[in-house]
Amino acid sequence: MSDLSSINTSERKQAQRPVSLFRNLSAKIASIPMILTALVVFVGGTAWTVVHSFTSSKLLPKTNFVGFEQYERLWTTRRWLVSLENLALYGILSLVFTLVIGFTLAALLDRKIRGENVFRTIFLYPFALSFIVTGLAWQWILNPDLGIQHVVRSLGWESFTFNPLNDPDIVMYGILIAGLWQGTGLIMVIMLAGLRGIDEDIWKAARVDGIGTVKTYVVVIIPMMRPVFVTALVLIASGIIKLYDLVVALTNGGPGIASEVPAKYVIQYMFRAQNLGQGFAASTMMLVSVAIILIPWAYLEFGGRKRG
């Protein structure tokens, strides 16, 4: 290094690379918001929460560490266990149904039909609406006294019972109905884009081989669309973990605690019950579960090609 600078090429060298900190200075200044967000909020904030989940913080964050006490409390709290159970049920059903419905609708729209735009517009519009609007609309439709149950009963089927929002056993299915209504359009659009990317020759080859339409989809097309399915899966999964607004609007966790979810548990303890430590522990568990889902995926997707 000193060798190089002593040689009389300093003028040329300077033109190539000035002091490295000031090189490309505008870009660095422009990136300050991104760097701050990444380091302070994403890394710093997450680390702060994880660290404070080991404290006995109540109304205000404190730093008297108590080990895993908050986690022990968390895993013996019925409300948390119910929340997890609900999220698992909702998550699995939502994943399966969203993929199946989304793909089926996309496949139907891909059959060169008339009015494709009209159907697509209809299937996708709920996605533009918020979970609050979705929840309130479905709360009204599922209203036991005036909604669907009432209409069917007034048609003569007196014993008809469909009151998911007030029945602890099936309340999550009621939330699922609304969630599917809101979210399937998105997956349909993504699947449709994937189907459009498939070479027309594949279809011709399948027809020559005498494979039926449905079988072609299952045996040939779906395996070809693996990346699209992975994208859809990640999208659905990250949406499921966030499940909060919809529950607040539809049932607010009720009846009792029958439809509580982890995200709501966190908000409840952090901002309502003034038990910050519990909230931090619960949110750390959410982070851990996301990591458990994402790390294998990231490894499969990027591990083979490049590190990181």
Binding site: G45, T46, H52, M270
Partner: peptide, 9 residues
């Protein structure tokens, strides 16, 4: 990252 871990910070 779930928003919940960054809400309080």
């Amino acid at each position: 990252i779930p928003y919940q871990t960054m809400l309080y910070p």
